[in-house]
Each structure stands twice: as C-alpha cells, then as structure tokens.
Design a protein around this nucleic acid. Sequence first.
DNA 1: CTTGTTTTGACCTTTACTGACCTTTTGGTT
DNA 2: AACCAAAAGGTCAGTAAAGGTCAAAACAAG
Lengths: 153, 153
Amino acid sequence: MSLVTEIEKYLKKLFGNRDVIEVQRNELAEFFNCVPSQINYVLSTRFTPAHGYLVESRRGGGGYVRIIKLSWNVIPQYFLKELSEDVRPGISQQDAEGVLKRLFEDELITNREYNILKAIMDRDTLALNLPERDMIRARIMQALFTTLCRDDF
Amino acid sequence: MSLVTEIEKYLKKLFGNRDVIEVQRNELAEFFNCVPSQINYVLSTRFTPAHGYLVESRRGGGGYVRIIKLSWNVIPQYFLKELSEDVRPGISQQDAEGVLKRLFEDELITNREYNILKAIMDRDTLALNLPERDMIRARIMQALFTTLCRDDF
DNA sequence: CTTGTTTTGACCTTTACTGACCTTTTGGTT
DNA sequence: AACCAAAAGGTCAGTAAAGGTCAAAACAAG
C-alpha cells in the first residue's frame, strides 16, 4: 500500500467520532518517515471538499494543520448540481438570489444570514465587470456551501 | 498554544465589562516569563484598530500601557476611511479577520456567521490580484455593516 | 513506452520570539 | 536651574519555528 494511502487511513482513524482533528505537519512527516511536503500531497488529493473535508492551517510558531469533516448531506442535491457542474463557472445575481431564497425556505440559513449574503452578492458590492463578477459570486456561493457543511460549530 | 495567544486571552479577560485597561509592560512580561518586547508583539498583532483596540502608553517612572476597546461608532471609520483616501484603498485579509473576530467577541455575529464570512473574505475565495482583492473585501465588509445596522429582521 | 500517480528536495512565506540598543519621564542632587 | 540616575516603555533586526509551492524524479499500470 502506498504511503499516501497509509497516511490517509491514519488520519481518518484519528477522527474517531470527532469531526475535526489537528496535526503538526512536521511531526506527522517524521512519524511516517517522509518529507513534509508528502503531507501536503495527502491533503490535496485525499482531503478536498469533494472528498468531504476542509483543511485549515497556520504557519509560524504554534502552527498547525486542521482537518474538518464536512457532511454534504445538509445541502440538498439540487444545489450541489447547480455549482459542481463546470458548465457554470459563474452565477448571476438573479440566480444567486434564487438559491439564497431557497436556502432560507429550506431553513438552511437564517433570515439574517439571507440578508447579509444577498447584500454581499449584490452587483454593486462586487462591482466588477461581467465575466469576473459572476465568477466571484460563484466562488462566494461555493464558500458558503462548504461552510454550511461544517458541523464543528 | 503560543505565548502570544495566551497573553492575548489574559488581556481580554482582564477587560471584564470595562473598555479600558492599564498594565505595566515589564510586570506583564515577568508574569509570562518572556522578554518585554514580546508584549509589544502581542499589542501590535492582536490589539490593532482593525481588531477594535487602541493602545496608548507612557514611558518613564509611573509609565503604563493602556489598551482601549473602541466602540462600533468609530471602528468602521478606521478602514472605511482608507477606502475614500486613495492612498491604500481596501482591507487586508488579516485586518478583515480582526474585524470579524471583534464582531464575534461582541456577539454581534454568531460563530456560524463568523465562519461563513471568514470563508467568503478569504483570499482564495476572492481570487483576484492584489489591488482589487482588498478593494472588494472592503466593499463586502461595508455591505455587512450596512446590513447589520438594519433592524427589520 | 506512455500516461498518471507518488515521492522527494530545494526554495519560499508567514508567524512567533529574543536581545541589543534607544527614548521618554520622573525625581533627586548639586 | 543643570545634571544625572533610575524607571519606565519602544524599535528593529535577527533567529527560530512552523507550514506552502513547484517541478523534477521515481514508480506503477496499461
């Protein structure tokens, strides 16, 4: 079994029934007798949002790598389709508002969150020209979805 | 947890309900068993105007370090001002996170909202080159403030 | 033998901590 | 007053302690 797979298994076991773990990159690399960047390879190929994980990290003294388990099932399938298809690298303000409204109706976001997000995704807030504006709105929507799938808070 | 974080927590606890505290730099350094300049590091990385704090100090006999918690009446001015001045328009990710942290600490946004907004304002989400990225982040922050000031929900 | 995956290492960026040296303020001494 | 020493706090450059990136080499599968 390849190293990447062993490290992947090790980390997944580490979760237990928690949904967030924290490791030191160098420590882990030492434990598996490999170069530190190998850890990054594991993270970027096995712990992506598509795999249901989110990775946060911090450099410097007291730095860490934090892996957060996502549960994509909180987001109904129809939303996922909407964004995962690369047919749509961008999303219009109209469509975005539609998605937000639906999220609110499905009680996945609060009224307050709805209003904040609507203001953020407004074309006057983004204030970019058209191909970029819709692209960035899509990325913001993506970030929202990913965060909604976190259940560590 | 790094020393800087421990000192930060200690100081924030020290506030209690007050909005201004006073400490002796050397005393504090002795208490935490570190060099005095470490205290300056804490102040300059964790108690900036973007975090909603102001630091005043005096040297010499009877000297002190005074940390003032800014009110939300004035905090926005600190970076919205920079938007109109054409010197450095925009807000960095660091500063934005400071503002969000303070909003959360003051219970003006929930933990969930904090995480959503942090993800949205992340440089990887905005994914623009530098003058524009910070500008759009400032506009998003502005939109957030405007919406938070609404009281119709 | 070509293609995709894994592994490695050189080089980089960010964050935290330290120490040497500097400035300001106060208060006593002459 | 003028001076000086002690008692604060400030600055900055250097070091240490993390983690990140990228491309090349090695390997595996078809």
